[in-house]
Computed example of a mutant assay.
Amino acid sequence: ATLLHRNILANVLQNDAWLQPALKKPPHVDQLFIVCALPLYHIFALTACYLLAVRAGGVNLLIPNPRDMAGFIKELSKYQVNSFPAVNTLYNGLLNTPGFDKLDFSKLKTSFGGGMATQRPVAEKWLAVTGCPLSEGYGLSETSPTLTCNPADADKFSGSIGIPVPSTWLSIRDDDGNELPLGEAGEICAKGPQVMAGYWNRPDETANVMTADGYFRTGDIGVMSPDGYTKIVDRKKDMILVSGFNVYPNEIEEVIASHPGVLECAVIGVQDARSGEAVKAFIVKKDQGLTPEDVIKFCATQLTAYKVPKQIEFRTALPKTNVGKILRRELRDEKKAAAA
Rank of each mutant, 00 (worst) to 15 (best):
R235D: 05
A152V: 01
D175R: 09
C299P: 07
Y229S: 06
Y41M: 02
L13C: 03
V29M: 06
L127W: 10
K286E: 04
F157G: 00
A339M: 15
F33P: 02
D238H: 11
P98C: 01
P64M: 02
A17P: 02
P292W: 11
E124G: 04
E330T: 14
D234C: 13
D174G: 05
G58C: 14
L147Q: 05
N88I: 14
P98K: 06
L103Q: 04
Q271W: 07
K24A: 03
G219R: 03
F298I: 02
F105G: 00
S141K: 06
G324K: 01
Y248H: 06
V87H: 05
E313S: 15
H28C: 03
G137F: 15
K156F: 12
I326P: 00
I43C: 06
G159L: 12
K125P: 01
M224L: 09
V122P: 10
G244F: 14
F282W: 07
V122K: 09
V233Q: 12
G115I: 10
A190C: 14
K237V: 07
A340Q: 15
R67I: 03
L46E: 09
G289I: 03
T89A: 11
G137S: 08
K156N: 09
G192T: 07
V295I: 14
P309F: 13
D227S: 12
N208I: 10
W200D: 12
V129C: 06
L290P: 04
P181L: 14
I252C: 05
A338I: 07
K285A: 09
A212N: 09
A37R: 01
N11Y: 10
C149T: 08
K191W: 13
A281G: 11
E187Y: 06
C189P: 11
V242L: 15
L51A: 03
N150H: 13
G159P: 05
N92Y: 15
G276W: 14
G192M: 08
G198M: 02
T2L: 12
L103W: 08
